[in-house]
């Protein structure tokens, strides 16, 4: 695939590149559709319910119906909203979420851009989404929105720091920011990074939950206080875009966790190597997605100020300790 992507850009190859991006988009949309379905099922099962069962066989078409409903809804822009910004905000939120997927390798051969700074690119570009939330919150001219937007901005900025810091340990051990190199390093070591980097892994999981603003860190759209946070005034397909961005990040974050800490496409034991790498990737990836849903079905929500305290006073110092210890061990061993 690398060679395929390295072809000179012409009309023909350009078209093929665009088509392959569309294929990825299709895969991601399919994932989002069934992630939402599966989430509702899992949460339902936990709560002694069955989840959606009535739309299509086993309720499989529920999300399709929901999205269709959103697309058919009237496009409402509040009278006092800042119109251009209001229209632009869902796009600002969504585009980076899709753009970050370009660097994710799914196996050694199935990948798009093989970027030297893949990990950094992911973190950097994903930060732009916050801007979308904030713009949307500001443009909507609604008090719940603005509080939600401010919380979103504060949360994203605070948690991006421990998120990156927790990855530094892995980067030190690998000596590269390239995601394929990181997985290959894990193959070389014979163990996945969540064992030597257990502290970093813990911090990363917590910080990534906050970045995704999922339970227990879903204060951005804390339903019981802020109605729907920055999305309060949005409806129809603009709302769908925000939701889409959220779930595409679930895709992205679960992939990154799998690649960096859970060995990507590597089999857990050597003798299981005959099973193709993509299967392992999907298994680990699905486990991560299930983990997010499991937490959602169990935990209450943290308070905004406690969230900040956790980020700045606990996670950041811990991640610095992690970097220090990793560097020390790397020098000594």
């Amino acid at each position: 695939m690398s060679q395929f992507l390295a072809q000179p850009l012409g009309w023909g190859t350009g078209l093929i590149f665009a088509l392959s991006a569309v294929v990825l988009l299709g895969v991601v949309l399919g994932f989002v559709t069934y992630a939402i379905y599966f989430e509702r099922k899992v949460v339902g099962w936990v709560q002694f319910r069955h989840g959606p069962t009535r739309t299509g066989p086993l309720g499989l078409l529920q999300t399709v119906a929901d999205v269709l409903k959103l697309l058919l809804k009237e496009d409402i822009i509040p009278a006092l909203a800042d119109k251009p910004l209001f229209v632009l905000a869902p796009l600002i939120a969504f585009v980076p979420s899709f753009a970050v997927l370009a660097t994710l390798p799914f196996t050694e051969s199935i990948h798009f851009a093989d970027l030297g700074i893949g990990l950094l690119y992911y973190i950097a570009v994903s930060g732009i989404t916050t801007l979308g939330s904030l713009c949307g919150a500001w443009a909507a001219n609604n008090k719940y929105s603005i509080i939600g937007g401010m919380r979103a901005a504060a949360q994203m900025i605070s948690y991006e720091i421990p998120l990156i810091m927790s990855l530094v340990g892995v980067i030190l051990m690998t000596g590269s920011l390239n995601l394929i190199d990181i997985v290959n390093k894990q193959a070389e070591m014979g163990m996945w990074f969540f064992i030597p980097q257990i502290l970093g892994f813990g911090i990363f999981i917590i910080a990534s939950l906050a970045e995704l603003s999922r339970t227990p860190f879903d204060i951005v759209e804390a339903e019981s206080e802020l109605v729907a946070g920055h999305m309060t005034e949005y409806s129809g397909f603009r709302y769908a875009f925000f939701m889409l961005a959220e779930y595409v990040y679930v895709f992205g974050m679960a992939s990154i966790t799998t690649l960096v800490f859970l060995g990507g496409w590597l089999p857990p034991f050597e003798f299981l190597g005959f099973i193709p790498g993509i299967v392992w990737f999907i298994l680990k990836f699905s486990f991560m997605v299930f983990f997010y849903m499991w937490l959602r079905a169990t935990f209450p929500r943290m308070r905004a100020d406690q969230l900040m305290q956790l980020g700045w006073k606990v996670l950041l110092p811990l991640s610095l300790v992690n970097i220090f210890v990793t560097a020390l061990l790397k020098e000594l061993l």
Binding site: Q47, S224, R301
Partner: peptide, 16 residues
Amino acid sequence: YLMDIGATTPFLVAFR
């Protein structure tokens, strides 16, 4: 109350 605090499962446990 747990619903207010953000956990959804207790609601259904209690209602059962």
